[in-house]
Simulated scan of single mutants.
Amino acid sequence: MHALTIGEALARAQKWLREAGSTSPRLDAEVLLAHALGRDRVYLFRESQHRLDAKEARVYRDLVERRARGEPVAYLTGHKEFMGLDFIVGPHVLIPRPETELMVEYALAMLAGCPPGRRVAVDVGTGSGAVAVSLARLAPGAEVYATDISPEALEIARANAGRHGAPVRFYRGDLLSPLQGVLPPGSVAVVAANLPYIPSAEMAGLPRDVRYYEPALALDGGPGGLELYRRLVPGAGELLAPGGHLLVEIAPDQKERALELVPPPRWRSTALPDLAGRPRLIVAQKKGDGKPVL
C-alpha cells in the first residue's frame, strides 16, 4: 500500500471522525495532523502532496483513533488557545472555552478603570490558569491572585504563568479561603469565577468527550448547579472594594437563580449574553457604603 499524502490522510481522518460523531471532523483532523507533524495548519495546505512516512502515519492514526473514541483534541495535543495565548492543558483541568473570554474582557475593562495601585483581581477556581494568566498579561499594572483546590490544576496553572511571564500569585484551597490574611477586606477590584455549575443530575447527559475525559471536580456544581457560587458570594462581598465587581459564568438557564444570589441593596447585578445571545456572565457590582468607590 502506498504512503498517504497529507491530503489523503486528512480526507480519511475526516470521514472516520464524522462517522464517529465528531461535530468538527475536518478541523479535528487538521489540528491532529499538524500536531503529529510538528507543523502549523498552513503547512498542511501548502504541502498537501507530501507523503507521510511510517512513523508519521502511525502517530497520526493513534491520535485519530483516540479522538474517535471521544478524547478531546486539546488533551491529545496538550494545548488550547484562549485570549490569543497558548495554554497547556491536561485531564486535571477543564479545557478553556471561548465563552469564558467574555469574563476576561469584562474584567479587563473594569481593571482599566481602576486607579493605579487598586487594580487587584482574584480568579477563583483557576484550573489551567487561563483567566488569571490572561488578566496578568493583558491588564497593565494589575495584581492577580488565583486559587484552586486541586494541586494538579495548580501545577498546570503555574506552568502556564511561567511560560507567559505572568506574575500570578497562586494559592491552594477552597474558594477564597486561602486568601484570608493575604488580602485585606475591601481591597479587590474584581473577583472572577468560572466554577463548576452543571447540576449533579445532568452530569450523565453531558457529551461523551466532556463526561468521560474532563474532570468532574471542575464540572459538578451540586444538586442545583450553583452551590459553589452560593458559598462564594459572601466572601466575595467582603473582599471586594465598594464599586468592585464579582463576575461568574453560568449556564443560560440559570440566569434568574444566579441573580438571586447577588440581590439589591448590596449588589447591582445583571446578566450579559455570550456570542450566541444566551445569558452567560453574571456581573454583580458591590454598592458603595460611604467609602470611595473604584
Rank of each mutant, 00 (worst) to 15 (best):
I149A: 13
G165F: 09
A139E: 13
P223I: 07
P140T: 15
V133K: 00
A121W: 02
Q180A: 15
D148N: 10
P140L: 05
V168E: 00
S200D: 04
A146V: 14
R97M: 00
P167I: 05
A153Q: 13
V120G: 09
D123R: 00
P116E: 01
V210T: 04
V120C: 09
N194C: 06
L154S: 02
L154E: 05
A157Q: 03
E214S: 12
V191R: 02
L154M: 09
A121S: 09
L154H: 07
M103H: 02
Y145N: 07
G225M: 02
R172C: 09
I95K: 00
P140R: 12
A153L: 13
G225P: 03
V124H: 00
R158Q: 15
A130R: 04
A153I: 15
V190N: 12
G221D: 04
R118V: 06
L219A: 12
D220Q: 04
A166Y: 10
A161N: 10
D148L: 06
L176N: 09
V104Y: 02
A189W: 08
G117L: 01
V182Q: 07
L179P: 05
E202R: 15
P184K: 10
A218D: 11
E143T: 07
A142N: 07
P98W: 06
P98S: 13
Y197H: 12
P223C: 01
A112Y: 11
P199L: 01
A193Y: 11
L195F: 05
G127Y: 01
P178A: 02
V182E: 12
I156Q: 03
D174S: 11
V104M: 07
V120L: 08
D148F: 05
V133M: 00
C114P: 03
L111V: 11
R158T: 13
L102F: 10
V191F: 07
G181N: 13
S134M: 08
R118Y: 09
E101M: 12
P98R: 10
F170M: 07
H164P: 13
A159C: 10
V144Q: 03
T100H: 02
L102E: 07
V122K: 00
Y145M: 09
A201R: 15
R137M: 12
P167A: 01
A192F: 02
G224R: 08
L217Q: 05
A109C: 02
L94V: 06
E152D: 15
R119C: 07
R137K: 15
D174H: 13
R172M: 11
Y197G: 02
R163P: 08
L206C: 13
V104E: 01
R97P: 03
P98V: 15
L195Y: 03
M103W: 04
G113N: 09
L219I: 11
V120K: 05
P196K: 08
G165V: 13
E101R: 13
M203G: 08
